[in-house]
Amino acid sequence: MINKEVSNVQKALFGITDHMTLMLGGFGLSGIPENAISELVRLGVKNLTCISNNAGVDDFGLGLLLQKKQIKKMISSYVGENDEFERQMLSGELEVELIPQGTLAERCKAAQGGFPAFYTPAGYGTEVAEGKETREFEGKMYVLEHAFKSDFSFVKAWKGDVAGNLIFKGTSRNFNPCMCGASKITVAEVEELVPAGTLDPNQIHIPGIFVQRIFQGTHYEKRIEQRTVRQKV
């Protein structure tokens, strides 16, 4: 067993510097690497390019990095619900590349799986396809999209073992598995870190080969963005 455990978030983020490109898992605020984000804020690294489906809200998630102006460029599919983000984008302080959600996921997967590029129908005929190679297959048009290149992936799982094997919960899985092994270094934080041999190999979502560092996360807030309930009749 190759042990991937690091004892804390400081060690997990060793080697992070200004100008790096990062992938961060999560959909909205669900499944975001809360501990890694807090540490990025504490370290104060700047001019980051962040690949993440969303940009958090004003005071949580990637919004915390935006507040400190640590992000130079965001690559996302949906960035509503964040006033500071909108202000920085409209004033030109923040560069933003919006891409279709499925393309975002697949560009991560391509990096993970060794594909330099792929064709997708998403965005054909729209401004997303401007300047990109297009090609017809069986009468339908497709756009060539490239694998991401990034330095660190920060993902959050429900359970993990010290070998780096990961299990996700519910819809907090989202982009996290796609980003594992898609950067030079993948850092996984988990709600529950267990010894090797504890998790059933049949139930592993992401094998440890895609993870370089794993640590036991702390103080998860797991904030709900849109608490929606029904009444008992």
Binding site: F27, G28, L29, S30, G31, Q101, G102, W158, K169, G170, T171, S172, R173, N174, K222, R223, I224, E225, Q226, R227, T228, V229, R230, Q231, K232
Partner: peptide, 27 residues
Amino acid sequence: ENGVLGMGPFPFEGEEDADVINAGKQT
């Protein structure tokens, strides 16, 4: 599209789970 098939109704109050949301980020 955030990763669930077989979506049901909104939860009863007190039964919300931050790890189970729809694409509109609703529980």
